[in-house]
Amino acid sequence: MERRSLLRAAAVGVGTAAFSGSLWRQAAAYPALPGPGPYGDLQPADSNGIMLPSGFTSRVIARSTQTVPGTSHTWHRAPDGGACFADGSGWIYVSNAEIGGGGGGVSAVKFDSGAAVIGAYGILSGTDRNCAGGSTPWNTWLSCEEVSTGHVYETDPWGVQAAVRRDAMGRFNHEAAAADPVRKVIYLTEDASDGCFYRFVPTTWGDLSSGTLQVLKEVSGVLSWANVPDPDGKPTPTRDQVSGAKLFNGGEGCHYRSDICYFTTKGDNRVWAYHAADNTLAVVYDDNVTGAPLTGVDNITAATVGDLYVAEDGGNMEIVIITPDDIVAPFLRITGQSSSEITGPAFNPAGNRLYFSSQRGTTGSSSGGITYEVTGPFRTSL
C-alpha cells in the first residue's frame, strides 16, 4: 500500500473505527495533500518582505522594543500566541511575550472599525515564557507559560480586570488552549516530546478557579479521559501520572471549531483532529507525503469557512492553508527572516484581516519581533 493510502488508513483507524457526519466526509480524505490553494500562487515579496496571493496586502502593526504607532505603549519582545476580540465596531488583538525569567506577559492593540490603531497597553507582566494560549467564550485570553512548571493565566483583553493565575488548570509545559462550549471544557496542549493532550473541566462553566484536569488515554485503540491525580505536577509530572496516557511529540497550537479540536505536534510535523462528539482522533496533515509544503507546524487558527491556517516555526516561514477538501498550500511567505518563526495567527471578528507576528524578525533576536496585518479577499463561502 502506498504511503498516502497508509496515512489515510491510519487517520481513520485511531480511536473508534468509524466517524460520522461532517467529520467522516473530511476524514475519508485525510491527511491533506499538496494542491492548488484557493487564492492562487504567491506573488513577489511586497515592501514588507511578504509574499502574498494576488489582491492581498500587508502592513506592519508593531515592532518589538518600539512604541506602537499612535500610542505610548512599547511593544513587547518575542511576540507569540495571539487572538482577536470584538470591541464594539472595532476589535482588539492580544499577543503573548515569550520571554523567560519573569520578562513574559501579554500586550494588546485596539483597532477602530476602520482598522486604525487607537490604543495599545499591557494586560499581563512578570510571567515566564508566555507562548500560546486561547480565547474563551466569555471574552478572556488564556496565556500559557511554556516551562516545566508553567501556569495558565486568565487575562482581560481590555486591561480593566487584573490577570488571574488559574492553578486548577495544572502545572506543566503549557502551550495552547481551546474552549469547547458544547462539552464545557478547555483543551490544553503540552510542549514536550512525550507530552499529553489534556482537558480542564471547570466546576462551573465560565469560572476557571476550580475544576478537574483530565488527560487523554488510549488503551487497545480506545480513547478515554482520566483524572490527573495531582495537577500541581510535583513531584511527578502530570504527563507521567496516568497509565496509558496517549503521548504526543511536542504539542503546539490548538483551535476548536464545530465539535473538533485541531492541534499540532512539532516533533512529527502533524496536524490532528480530536472529534469531541465521537471521541475519535485523526491525522489531518502529515509532512511525510510527496511535496508536503508545511514543516515546523506551530500555531493554528481557522477562518469562518473552515480553512485552517497553520504557522511555521522555521521551515520556509510560511502560513499554510488546509482547506475543508483536504488541500494544503502556502498562503503567505515571509522572506529574509530565516532565523525567526511565525506566531499568533488570528482573524478579526469580520474575518477579513489576519494578524500574526514574526517572533524574531530580520535580526534573529527577541528584540526584532514584528507584528503584521494582512487584508484582502478572504473567502466567505466555499
Results as ranks from 00 to 15, higher is better:
Arg3Phe: 08
Arg8His: 10
Ala18Cys: 07
Ala27Gly: 14
Ala27Phe: 07
Pro36Arg: 15
Tyr39Ala: 03
Asn48Glu: 13
Ser54Val: 12
Arg63Val: 13
Gly70Cys: 06
His73Glu: 11
Gly81Thr: 02
Phe85Leu: 11
Gly88Trp: 04
Ile92Met: 02
Ser95Glu: 10
Gly105Asp: 09
Gly105Gln: 12
Val109Pro: 03
Phe111Lys: 05
Phe111Asn: 00
Asp112Val: 08
Gly114Ser: 12
Ala116His: 12
Ala120Gln: 06
Ser135Val: 05
Trp138Tyr: 14
Asn139Asp: 14
Trp141Asn: 00
Ser143Gln: 10
Glu145Cys: 01
Gln161Ser: 14
Arg171Pro: 00
Phe172Gly: 02
Asn173Cys: 14
Ala179Ser: 15
Ala179Leu: 01
Val185Phe: 04
Val185Ala: 01
Ser193Met: 15
Gly195Arg: 00
Leu208Phe: 13
Leu213Pro: 01
Leu216Gln: 03
Gly221Cys: 02
Gly221Phe: 05
Asn227Val: 15
Pro229Thr: 13
Thr236Gln: 02
Pro237Gln: 00
Pro237Thr: 03
Gly244His: 09
Ala245Trp: 00
Ser258Met: 01
Thr265Cys: 09
Asp268Val: 05
His275Ala: 15
Ala282Asn: 09
Tyr285Lys: 01
Asn288Asp: 10
Asn288Cys: 04
Gly296Asp: 12
Gly296Pro: 06
Ile300Leu: 14
Thr323Glu: 07
Ile327Phe: 00
Phe331Tyr: 11
Leu332Gly: 04
Leu332Lys: 05
Gly336His: 03
Gln337Val: 14
Gln337Leu: 08
Ser338Val: 11
Glu341Phe: 06
Thr362Arg: 13
Ser365Gly: 10
Ser367Ile: 12
Ile370Phe: 03
Tyr372Pro: 13
Glu373Trp: 03
Thr375Met: 12
Phe378Thr: 00
Arg379Tyr: 13
Leu382Lys: 13
